[in-house]
């Protein structure tokens, strides 16, 4: 678009013979990056962006594969249905619960692990490879493994929890509407701690060592060094990681879908599993897209608030 005026300006200062060479060089300069980029752009455009727009348009239509003749544009009807859908509000509450507790435990345990890995000890390389292993376990398999661990027939967890007095008898908490959500949350913590540990470890390693030496000379306690040096340095990294992870976890349906399928009695249904079950089991694409748009809007609002807060609070 803006290529022409630049070339015109170039022509004034350049002798006639040189123009063509300049122009082709300039064009080449502008176009060359896109030789490398185009496959990626084309694929993202065709497989993600176009379906995204189509998906938003679905939320204004009635598209049920089981009722092919009832399809068509229906305006905001899906959204009106959504507003009065009790399952949607339950799912919203569950999403908050699931995301908050998952992220809290992942973050605290991840921070602890990162601080441990930032010290020296025997066998550190092996230790690191082993504690990061849960990250490599396919999610459906983490889900199945934890579902089995919570099963009193073959898993030890119900028996341990009963022995500790947390459960009255060894039963499967995944079948208990009051406790079921803790099953997928545990699996999620197990799976997500390594990620937090890796990113926070990177941030820890970027803190200059002299600061700790100075603190030691001044006689600071370990707790003081932690709150006065480590935490302030980690704050920007923590903010960005927690934000990205929150969004990711709110979208993360696999664990819950495999472990409980949203049950019992919708007690573990979060918005993303609700989208999936509506699309996959009921084949109601219009309504599934409506829930998805709602989730997207909620996440956008969350991101905007968090970025605004960060701008206000963190002066780095």
């Amino acid at each position: 678009m803006e290529g022409k005026p630049v070339i015109a300006r170039a022509q004034k200062t350049v002798r006639p013979g040189e123009t063509r060479a300049r122009r082709s060089l300039y064009l080449q300069y502008m176009v060359e990056p896109f030789y490398y980029l185009s496959p990626a752009i084309l694929l993202i455009g065709a497989v993600i962006m176009v379906p995204l727009i189509i998906g938003i348009s679905y939320s204004f239509q009635s598209i049920e594969l089981l009722k092919p003749f009832a399809s068509g544009w229906i305006g905001f009807e899906n959204y009106v249905d959504l507003w009065s859908d009790r399952k949607f509000w339950i799912a919203m509450e569950n999403t908050l619960f699931w995301t908050f507790w998952s992220i809290t435990f992942q973050f605290l345990l991840g921070l602890g692990l990162a601080m441990l890995l930032n010290t020296q000890f025997f066998g550190k390389k092996l230790f690191q490879a082993l504690v990061f292993l849960p990250w490599a376990v396919p999610t459906f398999l983490s889900a199945l493994t934890w579902a089995w661990l919570f099963n009193p027939v073959i898993g030890p967890l119900p028996h341990w929890l009963a022995a500790l007095g947390i459960l009255s008898e060894p039963y499967n908490i995944l079948g208990d509407p009051d406790l079921a959500m803790w099953g997928p949350i545990t699996a999620n913590i197990w799976f997500g701690v390594p990620f937090f540990a890796i990113t926070l470890l990177a941030a820890l390693q970027s803190i200059p060592g002299e600061l700790y030496e100075a603190a030691e000379v001044d006689g600071a306690s370990p707790w003081q060094t932690f709150t006065k040096i480590t935490l302030p340095f980690l704050a920007p990294m923590i903010a960005i990681t927690v934000m990205l992870r929150t969004i990711w976890i709110a979208n993360f349906a696999d664990l819950i879908f495999v472990m409980t399928g949203g049950g019992p009695a919708n007690s573990t249904q979060i918005l993303s599993t609700y989208i999936f079950t509506t699309a996959f089991r009921k084949l109601d694409f219009g309504y599934a897209s409506t829930i998805a748009v709602a989730l997207l809007v909620i996440l956008l609002i969350y991101a905007v608030i968090l970025l605004w807060l960060r701008k206000k609070l963190v002066k780095i």
Partner: peptide
């Protein structure tokens, strides 16, 4: 190059929104 920021922004956005959102269109 021109458009670099836009391309990067689009790539970041794809990491943000629920991929499940496009499961219905992709199926169709």
């Amino acid at each position: 190059f021109k458009g670099k920021r836009i391309v990067i922004a689009i790539m970041l956005v794809t990491q943000m929104f629920p991929l499940l959102m496009i499961i219905a269109p992709i199926y169709k």
